[in-house]
Amino acid sequence: MVKFLDYLRNIFAKDKKVNIGLYGHPNSGKTTLANSIAHDWIGNDIGQSSNVPHETRSVMKQEKVVIENDDTRLEFDIIDTPGISTKVDYKNFLEYGLEEDEAKSRAKEATKGIIEAIKWLDDVTGVLLVVDSTMDPLTQTNITIIGNLEARKIPFIVVANKIDHSDANIDRIISVFPQHTVIPISALKKEKLDDLYEEMFKKFN
């Protein structure tokens, strides 16, 4: 009887759509990571990344990404979400050389993007929480995202990004999130992405 139930469960599990959301602060490297994953497995980029915060202001989706190794296979859709923050000040964008009108327009779009990212929490089945290793990880944004994922029982991996920077501090992230899986990578330099894929097989399959 138990075997029969497992059999049925496996059938339904295979039919279940896997939506993996990339969440985190603006400029933590979500789109760079989404592009690296897409580039590795389907040969194209998903979106445009830049050093100006809130470059991604609406959710971008790449369907049917398949990652595999000798033993395992994972098929999923990548949901690259706009960075979540508690504030959006257009004046910050002026420092990056944007004109005032362009900065204001970007700020308005960013607020809508953050709402859209939060709404997508209802539809993701797994999450890569992308954290900038050079910054303090103990922020209200990260706490809020993790609290939501735990409450919804959505599996997630804390991706400690930007380890290629000399001021990256992986130990700080591990000490702040000791009960969660932390995988250090550089999305830009494509360092240690294999470690991330191995963990994705475990968490999201």
Binding site: I84, S85, T86, K87, V88, D89, Y90, K104, A107, K108, T111, K112, I114, I115, I118, L121, Q140, T141, I143, T144, G147, N148, E150, A151
Partner: peptide, 28 residues
Amino acid sequence: TNYERTELIETTMREIDIENFVGIDVHT
């Protein structure tokens, strides 16, 4: 609660008017 923290961010985004209110800082 988790729900309230998320709702606080979402409501803040709706209330931002670019010129006068640019959002909140939260500390605990």
